[in-house]
Design a protein around this nucleic acid. Sequence first.
DNA 1: CAAATATATCGACTTTTCCCGATATGCCAA
DNA 2: TTGGCATATCGGGAAAAGTCGATATATTTG
Lengths: 83, 83
Amino acid sequence: MLEWLKEPEINFPDQLQHAGFEHGVCVGQIQAKAGLTQSTVSEYLSILQRAGFIESKRVGQWTYYKRNEGAFEALSKLIKSNL
Amino acid sequence: MLEWLKEPEINFPDQLQHAGFEHGVCVGQIQAKAGLTQSTVSEYLSILQRAGFIESKRVGQWTYYKRNEGAFEALSKLIKSNL
DNA sequence: CAAATATATCGACTTTTCCCGATATGCCAA
DNA sequence: TTGGCATATCGGGAAAAGTCGATATATTTG
């Protein structure tokens, strides 16, 4: 999922009919591509969010998720320096 | 353990009475510090080795483990570029 | 070769993680 | 305000990971 969200336009073309990509991709799109149940995907995304890897924005009945690039940069540095 | 192995001289002072640090630290030293059983530590180290994060060298009845810094460098880059 | 020591492997049990269906919550439209 | 849709949360069963004791293997020493 994290890799998918790196290129939303390529991995979630249906999102266009629905909204732009400014806020990210909504749960339903990710769920369809993942082939997991809605509850599983929702929980997974919320875990990634708590971990800081993605950000969410609620717009109406939809929740959009997008990557937080800073977190990956930080993790990369952490592995190099601390681990 | 990976962090410990970054500074063997500091984290495994008893290793001096036993051998140098050229080959790394032996399982018993790591086990004592970890507070886990011998079998657990041995298996854990072999997993880390298969994953490429540490290297092992058998010398007599001892097996010494030391970090493979290249693996951490590679992981760091992978997270930054691919993930 | 036998005993002692260091490490590795095996099988079982416990804990954690994964994933689901059911249900709750929030929002929108008729 | 009711019904429908998107998402979130909850509880439980299945799968995976963690940990242990017992035992096997390898090496050194007497």
